[in-house]
Protein backbone atom coordinates (compact mmCIF):
# COMPACT_ATOMS: atom_id res chain seq x y z
CA UNK A 1 0.00 0.00 0.00
CA UNK A 2 1.04 3.58 -0.71
CA UNK A 3 1.19 6.55 1.59
CA UNK A 4 0.81 10.09 0.36
CA UNK A 5 2.07 13.30 1.91
CA UNK A 6 0.74 16.63 0.68
CA UNK A 7 2.39 19.91 1.63
CA UNK A 8 0.27 22.86 0.57
CA UNK A 9 2.64 25.80 0.95
CA UNK A 10 2.00 29.48 0.42
CA UNK A 11 3.53 29.32 -3.03
CA UNK A 12 3.75 25.69 -4.15
CA UNK A 13 1.97 22.43 -3.57
CA UNK A 14 4.31 19.48 -3.06
CA UNK A 15 3.13 15.87 -3.08
CA UNK A 16 5.07 12.65 -2.46
CA UNK A 17 3.94 9.04 -2.80
CA UNK A 18 5.79 6.61 -0.57
CA UNK A 19 6.01 2.86 -0.17
CA UNK A 20 8.01 1.07 2.54
CA UNK A 21 9.74 4.30 3.46
CA UNK A 22 10.87 5.04 -0.09
CA UNK A 23 9.70 7.90 -2.28
CA UNK A 24 8.02 6.34 -5.33
CA UNK A 25 6.85 9.54 -6.96
CA UNK A 26 6.92 13.25 -6.27
CA UNK A 27 5.79 16.41 -8.01
CA UNK A 28 4.94 20.03 -7.36
CA UNK A 29 2.96 22.87 -8.87
CA UNK A 30 2.03 26.45 -8.07
CA UNK A 31 -0.65 26.77 -5.40
CA UNK A 32 -2.29 29.60 -7.34
CA UNK A 33 -5.70 30.89 -6.36
CA UNK A 34 -7.66 27.69 -7.04
CA UNK A 35 -5.60 25.85 -4.49
CA UNK A 36 -8.16 23.10 -3.83
CA UNK A 37 -8.55 22.24 -7.50
CA UNK A 38 -4.80 22.44 -8.07
CA UNK A 39 -4.08 20.14 -5.12
CA UNK A 40 -6.52 17.52 -6.32
CA UNK A 41 -5.34 17.63 -9.92
CA UNK A 42 -1.69 17.37 -8.87
CA UNK A 43 -2.56 14.37 -6.71
CA UNK A 44 -4.40 12.67 -9.59
CA UNK A 45 -1.60 13.48 -12.00
CA UNK A 46 1.03 11.88 -9.75
CA UNK A 47 -1.00 8.71 -9.25
CA UNK A 48 -1.64 8.45 -12.97
CA UNK A 49 1.99 8.95 -13.97
CA UNK A 50 3.15 6.41 -11.35
CA UNK A 51 0.42 4.02 -12.42
CA UNK A 52 -1.16 3.78 -8.99
CA UNK A 53 -4.86 3.43 -8.42
CA UNK A 54 -6.53 5.56 -5.74
CA UNK A 55 -7.71 2.45 -3.93
CA UNK A 56 -4.09 1.41 -3.37
CA UNK A 57 -3.43 4.52 -1.30
CA UNK A 58 -3.88 3.63 2.36
CA UNK A 59 -3.35 7.07 3.87
CA UNK A 60 -3.16 10.71 2.82
CA UNK A 61 -1.73 13.22 5.27
CA UNK A 62 -1.70 16.94 4.64
CA UNK A 63 0.49 19.71 6.02
CA UNK A 64 1.52 23.26 5.13
CA UNK A 65 -0.14 26.62 5.69
CA UNK A 66 -2.83 25.78 3.13
CA UNK A 67 -3.37 22.19 4.26
CA UNK A 68 -7.15 22.66 4.27
CA UNK A 69 -7.01 22.75 0.47
CA UNK A 70 -6.16 19.03 0.59
CA UNK A 71 -9.74 18.34 1.72
CA UNK A 72 -9.52 14.71 0.59
CA UNK A 73 -6.70 13.91 3.05
CA UNK A 74 -7.65 11.73 6.04
CA UNK A 75 -5.56 13.68 8.49
CA UNK A 76 -3.34 16.67 8.79
CA UNK A 77 -0.32 17.59 10.89
CA UNK A 78 1.36 20.91 11.72
CA UNK A 79 4.15 22.26 9.55
CA UNK A 80 6.63 22.04 12.43
CA UNK A 81 5.84 18.37 13.03
CA UNK A 82 6.07 17.56 9.32
CA UNK A 83 9.40 19.36 8.89
CA UNK A 84 10.94 17.67 11.94
CA UNK A 85 9.58 14.24 11.02
CA UNK A 86 10.74 14.44 7.42
CA UNK A 87 14.18 15.83 8.18
CA UNK A 88 15.00 13.45 11.05
CA UNK A 89 13.84 10.41 9.12
CA UNK A 90 16.22 11.22 6.28
CA UNK A 91 18.98 12.66 8.44
CA UNK A 92 18.81 10.83 11.80
CA UNK A 93 21.77 12.82 13.15
CA UNK A 94 19.79 16.08 12.84
CA UNK A 95 19.43 18.05 16.06
CA UNK A 96 18.44 21.30 14.42
CA UNK A 97 16.20 21.80 11.43
CA UNK A 98 15.93 25.10 9.65
CA UNK A 99 13.05 25.37 7.20
CA UNK A 100 12.78 28.46 5.03
CA UNK A 101 9.88 28.56 2.62
CA UNK A 102 8.07 31.25 0.68
CA UNK A 103 6.20 32.88 3.55
CA UNK A 104 7.62 31.37 6.69
CA UNK A 105 10.91 30.56 8.35
CA UNK A 106 11.21 27.94 11.09
CA UNK A 107 13.95 26.81 13.36
CA UNK A 108 13.33 23.54 15.17
CA UNK A 109 15.45 21.84 17.81
CA UNK A 110 15.14 18.06 18.22
CA UNK A 111 16.54 15.66 20.80
CA UNK A 112 18.26 13.30 18.36
CA UNK A 113 15.37 10.84 18.35
CA UNK A 114 13.15 13.03 16.23
CA UNK A 115 11.33 14.53 19.19
CA UNK A 116 10.80 18.30 19.08
CA UNK A 117 12.36 20.18 22.00
CA UNK A 118 11.72 23.79 20.97
CA UNK A 119 11.04 25.85 17.89
CA UNK A 120 10.73 29.44 16.66
CA UNK A 121 8.85 30.85 13.71
CA UNK A 122 9.28 33.85 11.45
CA UNK A 123 5.79 34.28 10.12
CA UNK A 124 3.24 36.85 9.04
CA UNK A 125 5.99 39.19 7.89
CA UNK A 126 7.64 38.81 4.49
CA UNK A 127 11.03 39.99 5.82
CA UNK A 128 12.04 36.60 7.19
CA UNK A 129 11.19 34.33 4.27
CA UNK A 130 11.49 33.68 0.56
CA UNK A 131 8.85 36.31 -0.24
CA UNK A 132 11.44 38.94 0.64
CA UNK A 133 13.83 37.63 -2.01
CA UNK A 134 10.99 37.40 -4.50
CA UNK A 135 9.99 41.05 -3.97
CA UNK A 136 13.59 42.15 -4.43
CA UNK A 137 13.89 39.96 -7.51
CA UNK A 138 11.04 41.92 -9.04
CA UNK A 139 12.83 45.22 -8.42
CA UNK A 140 16.12 43.78 -9.68
CA UNK A 141 14.46 42.02 -12.62
CA UNK A 142 16.24 38.88 -11.53
CA UNK A 143 14.45 35.50 -11.51
CA UNK A 144 14.49 33.95 -8.06
CA UNK A 145 16.31 30.86 -9.40
CA UNK A 146 19.30 33.01 -10.38
CA UNK A 147 19.53 34.86 -7.11
CA UNK A 148 21.82 32.42 -5.35
CA UNK A 149 24.34 31.98 -8.11
CA UNK A 150 24.63 35.67 -8.89
CA UNK A 151 25.04 36.66 -5.27
CA UNK A 152 27.87 34.11 -4.92
CA UNK A 153 29.88 36.19 -7.39
CA UNK A 154 29.97 39.12 -5.02
CA UNK A 155 32.26 39.64 -2.06
CA UNK A 156 30.90 43.04 -1.08
CA UNK A 157 29.05 43.71 2.14
CA UNK A 158 26.31 46.25 1.55
CA UNK A 159 24.01 46.62 4.52
CA UNK A 160 20.31 46.99 3.79
CA UNK A 161 18.63 49.53 6.05
CA UNK A 162 15.03 48.67 5.30
CA UNK A 163 13.66 45.63 7.10
CA UNK A 164 10.24 45.59 5.45
CA UNK A 165 10.01 44.03 1.99
CA UNK A 166 7.99 46.98 0.69
CA UNK A 167 10.55 49.54 1.85
CA UNK A 168 13.47 47.33 0.83
CA UNK A 169 12.17 47.30 -2.73
CA UNK A 170 12.61 51.09 -2.85
CA UNK A 171 16.06 50.69 -1.34
CA UNK A 172 17.03 48.19 -4.04
CA UNK A 173 15.82 50.64 -6.70
CA UNK A 174 17.97 53.38 -5.12
CA UNK A 175 20.96 51.05 -5.08
CA UNK A 176 20.40 50.32 -8.76
CA UNK A 177 20.20 54.05 -9.50
CA UNK A 178 23.47 54.47 -7.64
CA UNK A 179 24.95 51.98 -10.14
CA UNK A 180 25.51 49.27 -7.54
CA UNK A 181 26.17 45.99 -9.31
CA UNK A 182 23.30 43.53 -9.47
CA UNK A 183 25.36 40.75 -7.92
CA UNK A 184 26.22 42.95 -4.93
CA UNK A 185 22.57 43.83 -4.38
CA UNK A 186 21.59 40.15 -4.68
CA UNK A 187 24.15 39.33 -2.00
CA UNK A 188 22.89 42.13 0.25
CA UNK A 189 19.35 40.74 -0.06
CA UNK A 190 20.45 37.17 0.72
CA UNK A 191 22.55 38.39 3.64
CA UNK A 192 19.58 40.30 5.05
CA UNK A 193 17.28 37.26 5.07
CA UNK A 194 20.05 35.00 6.36
CA UNK A 195 20.76 37.33 9.29
CA UNK A 196 17.08 37.17 10.31
CA UNK A 197 17.06 33.38 10.11
CA UNK A 198 20.35 33.32 12.02
CA UNK A 199 18.98 35.29 14.97
CA UNK A 200 15.81 33.21 15.02
CA UNK A 201 17.96 30.06 15.11
CA UNK A 202 20.21 31.48 17.83
CA UNK A 203 17.07 32.28 19.82
CA UNK A 204 15.97 28.63 20.03
CA UNK A 205 19.55 27.46 20.15
CA UNK A 206 21.13 24.97 17.76
CA UNK A 207 23.26 21.90 17.83
CA UNK A 208 24.90 19.84 15.11
CA UNK A 209 23.87 18.36 12.79
CA UNK A 210 21.88 21.19 11.31
CA UNK A 211 19.72 20.32 8.31
CA UNK A 212 18.34 23.00 6.00
CA UNK A 213 15.07 22.28 4.22
CA UNK A 214 12.48 24.27 2.26
CA UNK A 215 12.75 26.02 -1.09
CA UNK A 216 15.33 28.56 0.08
CA UNK A 217 17.86 25.74 0.55
CA UNK A 218 18.28 25.91 -3.24
CA UNK A 219 19.55 29.47 -3.01
CA UNK A 220 23.30 28.91 -2.69
CA UNK A 221 24.01 32.51 -1.74
CA UNK A 222 21.52 32.35 1.10
CA UNK A 223 23.01 29.05 2.31
CA UNK A 224 26.49 30.53 2.33
CA UNK A 225 25.31 33.56 4.30
CA UNK A 226 23.49 31.34 6.78
CA UNK A 227 26.59 29.19 7.34
CA UNK A 228 28.61 32.32 7.93
CA UNK A 229 26.01 33.69 10.34
CA UNK A 230 25.79 30.49 12.39
CA UNK A 231 29.55 29.92 12.08
CA UNK A 232 29.05 26.26 11.37
CA UNK A 233 28.44 23.83 8.56
CA UNK A 234 24.94 22.95 7.47
CA UNK A 235 23.65 19.82 5.77
CA UNK A 236 21.60 20.67 2.70
CA UNK A 237 18.69 18.32 2.34
CA UNK A 238 18.30 16.67 -1.04
CA UNK A 239 15.10 17.86 -2.74
CA UNK A 240 14.66 20.26 0.17
CA UNK A 241 11.17 21.44 -0.81
CA UNK A 242 9.74 17.90 -0.46
CA UNK A 243 10.96 17.14 3.08
CA UNK A 244 7.78 18.29 4.83
CA UNK A 245 5.61 16.30 2.40
CA UNK A 246 7.73 13.25 3.20
CA UNK A 247 7.31 13.97 6.91
CA UNK A 248 3.55 14.04 6.42
CA UNK A 249 3.52 10.81 4.41
CA UNK A 250 5.44 8.80 7.02
CA UNK A 251 3.77 10.39 10.04
CA UNK A 252 2.43 7.76 12.47
CA UNK A 253 4.19 4.93 10.68
Amino acid sequence: MYKVGIDVGAKNIKIVVMKDGEVIAKDQCLAGFETKENTLSLYQKILESANISESDVSKITATGSGKKAAYFAQNSITEVTAAAKGATSLYPSAHSIIDVGAEEGKSIRCDGNGKIVDFALNEKCAAGAGAFIESMGRALELPIEQFGELSMQSDKEIPMNAQCAVFAESEVVSLMHAKTEKKDIAKAVNDAVASRITSMTRKVGFEKDIVLIGGMAKNTGFVQALKKGLETDIILAKDPEYISAIGAAIYND
Binding site: F33, K124, C125, A126, A131, S135, A165, V166
Partner: peptide, 18 residues
Protein backbone atom coordinates in the same frame (compact mmCIF):
# COMPACT_ATOMS: atom_id res chain seq x y z
CA UNK B 1 -6.43 39.41 7.30
CA UNK B 2 -2.70 39.77 6.57
CA UNK B 3 -0.93 42.65 8.26
CA UNK B 4 2.15 42.38 6.04
CA UNK B 5 1.59 44.42 2.87
CA UNK B 6 3.28 41.79 0.71
CA UNK B 7 0.94 39.08 1.97
CA UNK B 8 -2.10 41.41 1.95
CA UNK B 9 -1.45 42.11 -1.72
CA UNK B 10 -1.53 38.39 -2.49
CA UNK B 11 -4.71 38.12 -0.44
CA UNK B 12 -6.32 41.01 -2.35
CA UNK B 13 -5.39 39.49 -5.70
CA UNK B 14 -7.15 36.34 -4.54
CA UNK B 15 -10.27 38.32 -3.56
CA UNK B 16 -10.38 40.00 -6.97
CA UNK B 17 -10.11 36.57 -8.61
CA UNK B 18 -13.00 35.40 -6.46
Amino acid sequence: SSTCVVFAKTEATGLLRE
